[in-house]
């Protein structure tokens, strides 16, 4: 699903150049659930941005779902982000003046689905994350866990192949964190590839393998036994 080879990325600010990703190679199969760990500055967020085509890279190769991602147009990138990738952010990134249903329906708006239909679909996804009765609430009226579940519903609505989650539980307490992880797990069980950036060990433990970054390269890859079986069995 995701293949990167010898990926380099540096940030240039004035005369300073900060080399963040230093020749990273990684392969993630379809249906895998992978966590990316590392201290701050290790390059995990940068990697996620590159994978999400929110940022470009300098050297190397990146294939997403068989498509070579390099110097593609903004319109094409928008289309890929819309239809192939789902994002879940630490700070939820819901639009404050739209209610829960409208937030969930937004990706379909960019696909040109008419209002009635996309709202109907949004309600189905809200039902799935258990927030059907909250559809008319604005983000400011919801708890952190609820907001994250809405964000997850939004990321799912366009039936993506990959979900990229950047510290999805970073702003949540441990109980809600586990609820959110249960939900992500459930989604993964349906075959959607899941990539979670986290620095919490117990979150990483719930994925099939953990990739630990250090200074822009992969330091270790740890396979977690409990879930690894499930993958090897199919």
């Amino acid at each position: 699903m995701i293949t990167i080879k010898n990926l380099h990325k540096s940030y240039v600010t004035g005369s300073n150049s900060l080399h963040v990703l230093k020749g990273l190679s990684l392969e993630i199969e379809e249906g895998e659930m992978v966590s990316i760990m590392g201290a701050s500055g290790s390059g995990k967020s940068t990697l996620l941005n590159v994978l999400g085509i929110l940022d470009n890279y300098d050297l190397g190769e990146y294939h997403l779902n068989g498509i070579f991602i390099k110097d593609i147009s903004e319109t094409k990138a928008a289309q890929l982000r819309n239809q192939t990738i789902g994002f879940v952010f630490q700070s939820f990134n819901l639009i404050s003046f739209k209610n829960a249903m409208e937030n969930v329906a937004l990706p379909l708006y960019y696909q040109g689905v008419n209002r009635r239909k996309r709202n109907q679909i949004a309600m189905e996804y809200l039902d799935r994350v258990g927030l059907k009765d909250w559809w008319m609430h604005l983000p400011s009226e919801l708890s952190g866990g609820q907001k994250q579940r809405i964000a997850i519903a939004r990321s799912l609505i366009s039936k993506p192949k990959v979900i990229l989650a950047d510290e999805p539980t970073g702003a949540l307490d441990s109980v809600t964190s586990m609820e959110v992880m249960d939900l992500l797990q459930e989604i993964n069980d349906e075959g959607i590839t899941m990539l979670i950036v986290t620095h919490e060990h117990d979150i990483a433990l719930r994925t099939q393998r953990s990739i630990k970054l250090k200074d822009g390269v992969i330091e270790t890859i740890t396979y977690h036994k409990s879930t690894y079986k499930a993958v090897s069995s199919f």
Binding site: E74, A78, Y110
Partner: peptide, 16 residues
């Protein structure tokens, strides 16, 4: 800016 960023990340084209 933030809101535009969110919209872009969930698939709004530049033209939109």
């Amino acid at each position: 800016t933030k809101e535009i960023g969110i919209q872009r990340s969930i698939g709004a084209t530049p033209w939109k």
